[in-house]
Amino acid sequence: MSNEPVSEWDQWLAENAGRFLLFSRQQTRGDEDAQDVLQDALIESWQRGGGRPESALVFATIRRRAIDLGRRHDRRTRREEEAAPDQDVWFDSAVHDRETAMLLEEAVRTLPKELCDVITLKVWGDLTFAEVAETLGIPQGTAATRYRTALMQLRKSLSPVLL
Protein backbone atom coordinates (compact mmCIF):
# COMPACT_ATOMS: atom_id res chain seq x y z
CA MET A 1 0.00 0.00 0.00
CA SER A 2 1.21 3.49 -0.75
CA ASN A 3 2.33 5.65 2.15
CA GLU A 4 0.47 8.65 0.79
CA PRO A 5 -2.96 8.03 2.36
CA VAL A 6 -1.33 7.32 5.72
CA SER A 7 0.54 10.60 5.80
CA GLU A 8 -2.52 12.51 4.67
CA TRP A 9 -4.54 10.83 7.42
CA ASP A 10 -1.87 11.79 9.96
CA GLN A 11 -1.80 15.34 8.69
CA TRP A 12 -5.58 15.61 8.77
CA LEU A 13 -5.63 14.28 12.33
CA ALA A 14 -2.96 16.73 13.42
CA GLU A 15 -4.92 19.63 11.95
CA ASN A 16 -8.41 18.70 13.10
CA ALA A 17 -8.49 16.13 15.91
CA GLY A 18 -8.66 18.81 18.62
CA ARG A 19 -11.84 20.47 17.41
CA PHE A 20 -13.51 17.16 16.61
CA LEU A 21 -12.64 15.84 20.06
CA LEU A 22 -14.09 18.94 21.72
CA PHE A 23 -17.42 18.35 19.99
CA SER A 24 -17.30 14.63 20.74
CA ARG A 25 -16.73 15.39 24.45
CA GLN A 26 -19.80 17.58 24.46
CA GLN A 27 -21.91 14.86 22.86
CA THR A 28 -20.91 12.06 25.25
CA ARG A 29 -20.75 11.39 28.95
CA GLY A 30 -17.02 11.00 29.41
CA ASP A 31 -13.64 11.05 27.76
CA GLU A 32 -13.55 7.35 26.99
CA ASP A 33 -16.87 7.48 25.19
CA ALA A 34 -15.77 10.66 23.42
CA GLN A 35 -12.62 8.99 22.14
CA ASP A 36 -14.43 5.85 21.00
CA VAL A 37 -17.11 7.86 19.21
CA LEU A 38 -14.51 10.10 17.64
CA GLN A 39 -12.37 7.24 16.37
CA ASP A 40 -15.33 5.49 14.75
CA ALA A 41 -16.65 8.75 13.31
CA LEU A 42 -13.30 9.73 11.82
CA ILE A 43 -12.86 6.37 10.13
CA GLU A 44 -16.42 6.34 8.81
CA SER A 45 -16.17 9.92 7.51
CA TRP A 46 -12.80 9.28 5.88
CA GLN A 47 -14.11 6.21 4.11
CA ARG A 48 -17.34 7.88 3.03
CA GLY A 49 -15.46 10.91 1.77
CA GLY A 50 -12.93 8.80 -0.09
CA GLY A 51 -10.21 10.66 1.81
CA ARG A 52 -10.18 13.97 3.65
CA PRO A 53 -13.88 14.60 4.39
CA GLU A 54 -15.80 17.86 4.79
CA SER A 55 -15.82 19.04 8.40
CA ALA A 56 -19.62 19.19 8.48
CA LEU A 57 -19.79 15.49 7.58
CA VAL A 58 -17.44 14.61 10.44
CA PHE A 59 -19.39 16.65 12.99
CA ALA A 60 -22.68 15.12 11.82
CA THR A 61 -21.18 11.63 12.07
CA ILE A 62 -19.87 12.30 15.58
CA ARG A 63 -23.31 13.50 16.61
CA ARG A 64 -25.10 10.49 15.12
CA ARG A 65 -22.70 8.00 16.68
CA ALA A 66 -22.93 9.75 20.05
CA ILE A 67 -26.72 9.52 19.92
CA ASP A 68 -26.46 5.80 19.08
CA LEU A 69 -24.06 5.28 21.96
CA GLY A 70 -26.35 7.21 24.29
CA ARG A 71 -29.24 4.92 23.38
CA ARG A 72 -27.14 1.85 24.12
CA HIS A 73 -26.10 3.41 27.41
CA ASP A 74 -29.71 4.01 28.32
CA ARG A 75 -30.53 0.35 27.81
CA ARG A 76 -27.86 -0.90 30.18
CA THR A 77 -26.93 0.14 33.68
CA ARG A 78 -25.02 3.40 33.87
CA ARG A 79 -22.46 1.98 36.22
CA GLU A 80 -19.52 4.14 35.30
CA GLU A 81 -21.43 7.32 34.65
CA GLU A 82 -20.42 9.16 37.79
CA ALA A 83 -17.33 7.10 38.45
CA ALA A 84 -15.08 8.76 35.91
CA PRO A 85 -15.43 12.51 35.79
CA ASP A 86 -13.72 14.34 32.96
CA GLN A 87 -10.13 15.13 33.79
CA ASP A 88 -9.00 16.66 30.54
CA VAL A 89 -9.39 20.35 29.89
CA TRP A 90 -11.39 21.45 26.87
CA PHE A 91 -9.31 24.42 25.82
CA ASP A 92 -5.66 25.04 25.17
CA SER A 93 -4.24 27.97 27.09
CA ALA A 94 -1.06 29.69 28.10
CA VAL A 95 -0.28 29.68 31.81
CA HIS A 96 -1.50 33.24 32.33
CA ASP A 97 -4.77 32.40 30.57
CA ARG A 98 -5.51 29.17 32.40
CA GLU A 99 -8.01 30.67 34.77
CA THR A 100 -9.94 32.24 31.90
CA ALA A 101 -9.85 28.94 30.00
CA MET A 102 -11.36 27.14 33.00
CA LEU A 103 -14.01 29.80 33.37
CA LEU A 104 -14.79 29.50 29.65
CA GLU A 105 -15.05 25.70 29.87
CA GLU A 106 -17.42 25.96 32.81
CA ALA A 107 -19.50 28.56 30.99
CA VAL A 108 -19.76 26.42 27.85
CA ARG A 109 -20.54 23.28 29.89
CA THR A 110 -23.43 24.99 31.62
CA LEU A 111 -25.05 26.22 28.41
CA PRO A 112 -28.19 24.35 27.34
CA LYS A 113 -27.14 21.58 24.97
CA GLU A 114 -28.74 23.12 21.89
CA LEU A 115 -26.84 26.37 22.47
CA CYS A 116 -23.60 24.57 23.32
CA ASP A 117 -23.76 22.58 20.07
CA VAL A 118 -24.23 25.69 17.94
CA ILE A 119 -21.54 27.78 19.61
CA THR A 120 -19.04 24.92 19.44
CA LEU A 121 -19.66 24.13 15.78
CA LYS A 122 -19.60 27.80 14.80
CA VAL A 123 -16.63 29.05 16.81
CA TRP A 124 -14.35 26.05 17.19
CA GLY A 125 -15.73 23.86 14.43
CA ASP A 126 -15.37 26.75 11.98
CA LEU A 127 -18.64 25.89 10.25
CA THR A 128 -20.99 28.30 8.51
CA PHE A 129 -24.55 28.71 9.78
CA ALA A 130 -25.66 26.64 6.82
CA GLU A 131 -23.31 23.82 7.83
CA VAL A 132 -24.27 24.10 11.49
CA ALA A 133 -27.92 23.86 10.49
CA GLU A 134 -27.27 20.83 8.33
CA THR A 135 -25.22 19.10 11.02
CA LEU A 136 -27.85 19.60 13.71
CA GLY A 137 -30.91 19.22 11.47
CA ILE A 138 -32.29 22.68 12.25
CA PRO A 139 -33.18 25.72 10.10
CA GLN A 140 -30.40 28.22 9.42
CA GLY A 141 -32.34 30.99 11.10
CA THR A 142 -32.63 28.87 14.24
CA ALA A 143 -28.87 28.26 14.18
CA ALA A 144 -28.23 32.00 13.96
CA THR A 145 -30.69 32.78 16.75
CA ARG A 146 -29.22 30.11 19.02
CA TYR A 147 -25.75 31.44 18.31
CA ARG A 148 -26.76 34.91 19.40
CA THR A 149 -28.55 33.60 22.49
CA ALA A 150 -25.49 31.56 23.41
CA LEU A 151 -23.27 34.62 23.09
CA MET A 152 -25.58 36.60 25.36
CA GLN A 153 -25.55 33.84 27.99
CA LEU A 154 -21.79 33.45 27.76
CA ARG A 155 -21.39 37.17 28.16
CA LYS A 156 -23.12 36.94 31.52
CA SER A 157 -21.05 33.98 32.67
CA LEU A 158 -17.79 35.47 31.47
CA SER A 159 -18.39 39.03 32.63
CA PRO A 160 -15.52 38.85 35.20
CA VAL A 161 -12.97 38.38 32.42
CA LEU A 162 -14.64 40.67 29.91
CA LEU A 163 -14.24 43.80 32.02
Binding site: M1, P5, V6, W9, D10, L13, A14, A17, G18, R19, L21, L22, Q35, L38, Q39, L42, I43, W46, Q47, D88, V89, W90, F91, D92, S93, D97, T100, A101, L104, I119, V123, W124, L151, L154, R155, L158, V161, L162
Partner: peptide, 29 residues
Amino acid sequence: SVEVLLQRFRPAPPKEVFMQRLRSVCPVL
Protein backbone atom coordinates in the same frame (compact mmCIF):
# COMPACT_ATOMS: atom_id res chain seq x y z
CA SER B 1 -16.30 41.08 22.94
CA VAL B 2 -17.49 37.57 23.81
CA GLU B 3 -16.72 36.36 20.30
CA VAL B 4 -13.23 37.79 20.53
CA LEU B 5 -12.69 35.99 23.82
CA LEU B 6 -14.02 32.68 22.47
CA GLN B 7 -11.83 32.89 19.40
CA ARG B 8 -8.78 33.47 21.57
CA PHE B 9 -9.00 29.91 22.80
CA ARG B 10 -8.52 26.81 20.68
CA PRO B 11 -9.70 23.30 21.57
CA ALA B 12 -7.11 21.43 23.58
CA PRO B 13 -5.18 18.97 21.44
CA PRO B 14 -5.86 15.30 22.18
CA LYS B 15 -3.35 13.51 24.35
CA GLU B 16 -0.48 11.92 22.48
CA VAL B 17 -1.61 8.42 23.52
CA PHE B 18 -4.97 8.99 21.83
CA MET B 19 -3.35 10.53 18.77
CA GLN B 20 -1.14 7.46 18.43
CA ARG B 21 -4.23 5.29 18.68
CA LEU B 22 -5.92 7.30 15.91
CA ARG B 23 -2.85 7.21 13.69
CA SER B 24 -2.59 3.46 14.19
CA VAL B 25 -6.10 2.80 12.85
CA CYS B 26 -5.15 4.11 9.44
CA PRO B 27 -3.98 0.70 8.13
CA VAL B 28 -7.53 -0.51 8.71
CA LEU B 29 -8.63 1.95 6.02
